[in-house]
């Protein structure tokens, strides 16, 4: 199955703990194992632009589509057997410790 991992911030997460896993380890492990398809960091929500077409008129606004205290800081697309495997992979990402990760199954257009 294919899953998207949304790597998100979390203002309640600890900041002073030593990291259990580093991002280099995680990227190396998931890339070598063939589970990670692609992924990257994203510029902060401040750099976001939101586009809407309403009644034929284009609206372009600065900022993210929803004003929240947390934002998506990166993403990864992984391929693995089931949700247990996806949880295991997400748990090793350093942002599981310093932020939070949302796992969403892909819904391919057939």
């Amino acid at each position: 199955m294919e899953y998207m991992l949304f790597i998100c911030t979390d203002s309640t997460a600890p900041t002073t703990e030593p990291p259990v896993h580093t991002i280099e380890e995680w990227v190396a492990e998931t890339t070598d194992g063939g589970t990670r398809r692609h992924g990257d960091r994203l510029r902060p929500a401040n750099d976001a632009t939101t586009v809407k077409l309403r009644g034929g008129r284009l609206s372009v606004t600065a900022g993210p589509f929803a004003e929240t205290t947390e934002w998506i800081a990166g993403y990864d697309v992984i391929e693995c057997g089931d949700l247990d495997a996806a949880i295991e992979i997400a748990a090793k990402h350093p942002m599981a410790q310093f932020g939070q990760i949302e796992i969403r199954p892909m819904w391919p257009i057939e």
Binding site: M1, Y3, G81, D82, L83, D84, A86, I103, P105, W107
Partner: peptide, 14 residues
């Protein structure tokens, strides 16, 4: 069905 929740008894570590 959609999220791929496994239908099994979890492995010993879980």
């Amino acid at each position: 069905r959609h999220a791929g929740i496994p239908y099994r008894v979890p492995p010993p570590d879980l």
